[in-house]
């Protein structure tokens, strides 16, 4: 069974990479997930978990996945915002784990916005 001491192996592996990352946060991409009651009940937690897994597995060092409160459009949750330095904010709505995976793959890694999931399509 895992114990908290098992983290040491991961920690030592991370150490060298962390130094490099700390030098520069100006290129940090922030992926923000709405995590108020509305977001959580609509499925924001598995979306958050998928984003986190993708970032970890693909070793995306300049991407930070964070939570926020209610974004004011509860019926469109789960909502994911992507903030890239020097670019306009991109807002996705009704995100599922599958869509989250696609957003990482096509938008964060590939640089192409997944226009079919944009909040702009909703009226």
């Amino acid at each position: 069974m895992k114990t908290i001491a098992d983290i040491q192996a991961i920690r030592d592996k991370m150490k060298s990479q962390i130094v490099v990352r700390d030098k520069d946060t100006s290129d940090e991409i922030r992926v923000i997930v709405g995590m108020a009651t509305c977001g959580i009940s609509a499925g924001a937690r598995p979306v958050f978990n998928t984003l986190m897994d993708e970032v970890a597995n693909r070793q995306l060092k300049n991407v930070k996945v964070v939570r926020t409160g209610c974004l004011g459009m509860c019926t469109l949750e789960p909502i994911v915002e992507v903030l890239e330095p020097g670019k306009e904010k991109v807002t996705y709505c009704r995100v599922t784990p599958a869509k989250a995976k696609e957003i990482i793959d096509r938008h964060i890694v590939g640089g192409n916005i997944c226009t079919q999931y944009l909040i702009n399509n909703e009226e």
Partner: peptide, 20 residues
């Protein structure tokens, strides 16, 4: 205390916490 300065919210650390 185990992390020696590595942020708690590093994705790999979070994956570990969930499994733990």
């Amino acid at each position: 205390q185990q992390l020696e300065g590595i942020p708690l919210d590093t994705p790999e650390i979070l994956q570990f916490v969930k499994q733990l």
